[in-house]
């Protein structure tokens, strides 16, 4: 299991489009992913869950990931959150 903290860089935070993009990634993952913001944790494969966190630009989130390909996925996620677009 990996726990990692990220700062979300994208312009409007995790609004609909980036959240949809994020789901496209997380749904590929065979295992569990959660996203935690300010102590509220949601299923990382649930778009509604992610939207409900209201993640804005520069917010910090903690990703918890557990599964066979966790290493490679945490890298992909890191790239994703670091993107500024």
């Amino acid at each position: 299991m990996i726990n990692k903290k990220f700062q979300v860089k994208s312009k409007h935070g995790l609004h609909l489009r980036p959240a949809t993009e994020l789901i496209k990634i997380t749904s590929q993952f065979d295992g569990e992913i959660t996203i935690n913001k300010n102590g509220i944790e949601v299923n990382g494969k649930s778009i509604l869950g992610i939207l409900s966190l209201g993640i804005e630009k520069n917010n910090w989130i903690i990703i918890k990931i557990e599964g066979e390909e966790e290493e490679s996925f945490i890298k992909i996620l890191g790239d994703f959150f670091g993107r500024e677009e």
């Binding site: 609909l16 959240a19 749904s27």
Partner: peptide, 19 residues
């Protein structure tokens, strides 16, 4: 592309395990 994303998002909601 912006509008097309809405369909993707809707699709994602319909696949949302929580929902």
């Amino acid at each position: 592309l912006e509008i097309l994303t809405i369909f993707d998002a809707q699709y994602a909601i319909l696949s949302d395990p929580l929902f």
